[in-house]
């Protein structure tokens, strides 16, 4: 039996075909498509993409939030004194306190240097 004869048989519309055959095949193809998607994970891939977009969006929101927080912290310092005289007096006392500490330190450093000179005269000169 050659191809031409088979084609003749195939095209012979007098030969009855079950009425539900096309529906059965349609169902079969749909099930094949579903099973293939299930195996290739198309839906989960779609979900994965959605997750990626959500992560990206969350990162952007976080960056904007952090940026806003940092900028708001770097705003102009507020005045702590209303009276300039009072501010100057506080400033002077602070500077004096620093100066006295520095002087103490310098005295101690001089004393240490003298001791070193006495112990190691050659190396310190």
């Amino acid at each position: 039996m050659n191809l031409n004869e088979l084609e003749e048989i195939a095209n012979d519309e007098h030969k009855q075909v079950p009425s539900n055959l096309e529906h059965d095949i349609d169902t079969l193809i749909n099930t094949l498509a579903f099973t293939e998607n299930l195996k290739s994970g198309k839906e989960s891939h779609k979900a994965g993409n959605q997750l990626k977009w959500l992560s990206a969006a969350a990162t952007v929101v976080l960056m904007i939030g952090l940026g806003w927080l940092l900028l708001s912290k770097q705003s102009e310092p507020k005045d702590t004194f209303n009276d300039p005289q009072e501010a100057y007096a506080y400033f002077s006392s602070t500077m004096n306190r620093i100066a006295s500490k520095v002087n103490d330190g310098m005295d101690k450093a001089d004393a240490a240097l003298s001791t070193l000179k006495a112990v190691l005269p050659n190396k310190t000169e």
């Binding site: 075909v17 055959l21 096309e22 095949i25 079969l28 193809i29």
Partner: peptide, 29 residues
Amino acid sequence: LSLNPLIYRVAIHLLNDEEAAKDTTQDVY
């Protein structure tokens, strides 16, 4: 999809069994 009658007719001619022909039609797809 529309070629299913052709497949069935060839299958029933060669197999001479309705169930086997239906089954083979599905196998083809």
